[in-house]
Design a protein around this nucleic acid. Structure first.
Lengths: 242, 242
DNA sequence: GGGATCGACTATGTATACCTTATTCCCGCT
DNA sequence: AGCGGGAATAAGGTATACATAGTCGATCCC
């Protein structure tokens, strides 16, 4: 009888997150391994909630692709979605597609407004760099700052439709982004290309053509996917293939 | 006590659809008017189900944008999303964006495979035309045939990621597509441009460049949005503005 | 007469109970 | 010993019960 946060902070000291947010975190951060089978009763127990909210969370995560049907049985079974480089590429590219298409709209803005957004993005990128360049970057913070840069673009340029799609794509992206930074470091790869690409975005937003803006954003995401893939390759090689 | 389809076919004679599918239909077909407030108990009553499955359906439809938060109150309230031409444009354009980007992949296929898909699309389009040209086209059938044409493209060319996004965009698209055909007829506008654009897609799939394919698809969706907007304008004018 | 306050009602969020069915494991039979 | 069947188990789907909180309405006071 889990009655209203029954004192039992269920292990992952989830502050005050609902079932969805908690489960999302567990998957994104890898606390639930890819491929792990999940059942509603087990998750409910782990989160200290009843099946009802857990079930809703699991259904949503399934729509978002973080949980997938598992086993060939007739009975619905669910597992944490596997991590897959090709899927990562598709996620990054699609993000670039949507974010880039929306950002073309800046060319219909006044020069003032474009400069304002460009400046905000420059600042956001600087905050990101500050974290990235620090001695031992906090992964969560690195993730947050990078996310903030792109989110700013989305917030200001996306239609409600593409915003909704990017939102539903968010969890999948977050899952790969979560270890993108740490993995780059592990593989000894530099962050510099990212800075450069962000800079190109800032410049394009300030005074480029619509194609410039879209290209800069899509290039950034496409290259990010390749950098991630390369980092995974090197990390695998360093550890001994797996 | 609605115990397992209690004989009470709740009005809209829903064959064997689950709560989500039923509610989706009600919204898509306009049986629930845009702006109408929905409460879980009321919908549960109407569908002859308990709140649990209804609640899940409503949450999903909210994620998909067919239901929206309503009223300024603190209490979560939900209403059927309004119909909006600008949103329709965004939906159509984003569909074209995703479908078009995926379809570029055909240029990496063998000529044989491309011809096969092109032929299948030509056949699908012909079936669509047959319906459209009939005396009194069944809206549901017209919708289904048009959907089948584009679905074929998605099924064969989209990545799992863009497929998922198109799937989550589907309900919103379906809502506008549902009365697209009937509205064109009402406004006395021809279907011919659609045939032409579908033909262009077939040709591009058969032997065009990646840009050709993408352009043909995006053009089709962009123009479809404009045709819908025009049909709405004319229908409004004919009826007397509203 | 208008506005504020109090109370009943109603909807949401969550927990729990029940039912059905697939899966699994064990036992018996061949 | 292997295979098949059946009982126990366990999980999903649904219904319902309960707690909480907001909303609406009515009444009372200013």
């Amino acid at each position: 009888m889990p009655s209203r946060r029954a004192g039992v902070t269920p292990q992952s000291a989830a502050q005050e997150l609902d079932a969805y947010a908690q489960l999302l975190q567990l998957v994104v951060r890898g606390d639930l391994a890819p491929g792990a089978r999940l059942t509603e009763p087990a998750v409910a127990l782990r989160l200290g909630l009843s099946r009802t909210p857990v079930r809703e969370a699991m259904q949503r995560l399934q729509l978002e692709g973080l949980l997938v049907p598992a086993g060939g049985g007739e009975r619905p079974r669910v597992a944490v979605a596997p991590l897959d480089i090709d899927e990562a590429r598709a996620v990054y590219q699609t993000t670039g597609l949507l974010e880039g298409a929306g950002a073309r709209a800046v060319t219909e803005w006044t020069a003032i407004r474009r400069r304002t957004l460009a400046t905000a993005l420059r600042v956001a990128d600087e905050e990101f760099r500050d974290i990235a360049r620090s001695k031992a970057p906090d992964p969560a913070l690195l993730f947050a700052k990078h996310h903030a840069f792109h989110q700013r673009i989305v917030d200001e340029t996306a239609t409600s439709v593409s915003r909704a799609l990017l939102h539903s794509l968010g969890p999948r992206l977050a899952r790969y982004e979560w270890f993108h930074g740490p993995l780059l470091q592990l593989a000894g790869l530099p962050f510099a290309p990212t800075y450069d690409e962000h800079h190109a975005i800032v410049i394009a937003v300030r005074s480029g053509t619509a194609d410039d803006v879209e290209t800069a954003i899509r290039t950034n995401w496409t290259n990010a996917a390749e950098r991630l893939a390369e980092a995974i390759r090197r990390a695998r090689a360093a550890i001994g293939g797996g």
